[in-house]
Simulated scan of single mutants.
Amino acid sequence: MLIPAFLLQHEMTVEAWQGEGPYGPSYAAPVAVRCFLDEQTRMVRNPGGEEVTSSSTAYALPDAVCPTRSRVTLPSGRTTTVIAAYQRDGGNLPTPDHLEVQLQ
């Protein structure tokens, strides 16, 4: 079961991080991603295990591509960075499968 489409009321623009290039970070072309955006500040752990502050969390369809360090532009126009992205799969449970994206 996927996250219901009626919950995806927001749209963020994601430039997927591709790595370091000769002139700094390299990003893919911008892609519009439908999501539910929860702008709430909270402490989260980054992939390195350090506690960092997340200003927003976006919930998108599981096939969205939002790797760590990607650049994201929110509906407000604010540009931020992906701290971590987690696939949430309920298996056989009746819970909505989705991608949780924690943003700086």
Score class of each variant (00 low, 15 high):
Ser55Gly: 08
Val44Thr: 13
Ala32Val: 10
Ala84Gln: 14
Leu61Pro: 07
Thr53Gly: 10
Tyr23Pro: 00
Leu74Ala: 08
Val31His: 04
Gly48Ala: 15
Gly77Gln: 15
Tyr59Val: 02
Ser70Thr: 12
Arg45Met: 14
Val52Trp: 11
Val31Trp: 03
Pro25Tyr: 06
Val52Arg: 15
Gln40Tyr: 03
Ser54Val: 05
Pro62Trp: 01
Val65Glu: 03
Pro30Trp: 15
Asn46Pro: 00
Gly49Met: 15
Asn46Ala: 01
Val82Phe: 05
Val44Ala: 06
Phe36Glu: 11
Ile83Tyr: 11
Glu50Tyr: 13
Ala84Asn: 14
Thr57Gln: 08
Val65His: 02
Gly48His: 14
Thr81His: 07
Cys35Tyr: 08
Gln40Thr: 07
Val33Glu: 05
Ala58Phe: 04
Met43Phe: 08
Ile83His: 06
Val44Asn: 07
Ser54Phe: 01
Arg69Pro: 05
Ala64Asp: 03
Ala28Met: 01
Ser76Gln: 11
Tyr23Met: 00
Tyr59Glu: 03
Glu20His: 02
Glu20Ser: 00
Gly24Val: 02
Leu37Met: 08
Leu74Ile: 04
Thr41Tyr: 00
Ala85Arg: 12
Gly48Lys: 15
Cys35Thr: 04
Arg69Ala: 02
Pro67Gln: 12
Thr79Phe: 11
Asn46Leu: 04
Glu51Ala: 10
Ser54Met: 00
Arg34Asn: 07
Val31Pro: 04
Pro75Arg: 12
Ala29Gly: 07
Cys66Gln: 04
Pro22Asn: 12
Ala64His: 03
Val33Gln: 10
Glu51Leu: 09
Thr68Trp: 15
Ala58Lys: 03
Asp38Ile: 02
Glu51Ser: 09
Gly49Gln: 15
Val31Tyr: 03
Ser26Met: 08
Ser70Leu: 05
Gly24Met: 02
Arg69Met: 10
Arg78Glu: 13
Gly21Gln: 09
Glu50Cys: 06
Thr68Ala: 15
Met43His: 11
Ser76Met: 02
Asp38Glu: 06
Thr68Phe: 13
Pro67Glu: 12
Gly24Asp: 01
Ala32Trp: 09
Thr53Ala: 10
Ala32Ile: 09
Glu20Pro: 00
Gly48Asn: 14
Ala85Asp: 14
Gly48Glu: 13
Ala85Gln: 14
Glu20Gly: 01
Tyr59Gly: 01
Cys66Pro: 00
Ala28Lys: 10
Arg34His: 06
Arg69Gly: 06
Met43Ala: 06
Val52His: 13
Leu74Thr: 02
Val52Lys: 13
Tyr23Asn: 08
Arg45Phe: 13
Ala29Lys: 09
Cys35His: 00
Val72Thr: 06
Thr57Asp: 05
Glu51Gln: 14
Pro75Gln: 14
Asp38Arg: 09
Thr80Asp: 03
Pro47Met: 07
Val31Cys: 03
Thr68Leu: 12
Gly21His: 04
Arg34Glu: 11
Arg42Tyr: 01
Pro47Arg: 10
Cys66Lys: 00
Gly49Cys: 11
Thr73Met: 10
Pro22His: 11
Pro30Arg: 12
Val65Thr: 12
Val82Trp: 10
Thr79His: 12
Ile83Pro: 02
Phe36His: 12
Val82Leu: 12
Thr79Tyr: 12
Pro75Ala: 00
Ala85Thr: 15
Glu20Tyr: 05
Val52Asn: 04
Leu61Val: 07
Ala29Ile: 05
Tyr59Arg: 02
Gly21Lys: 07
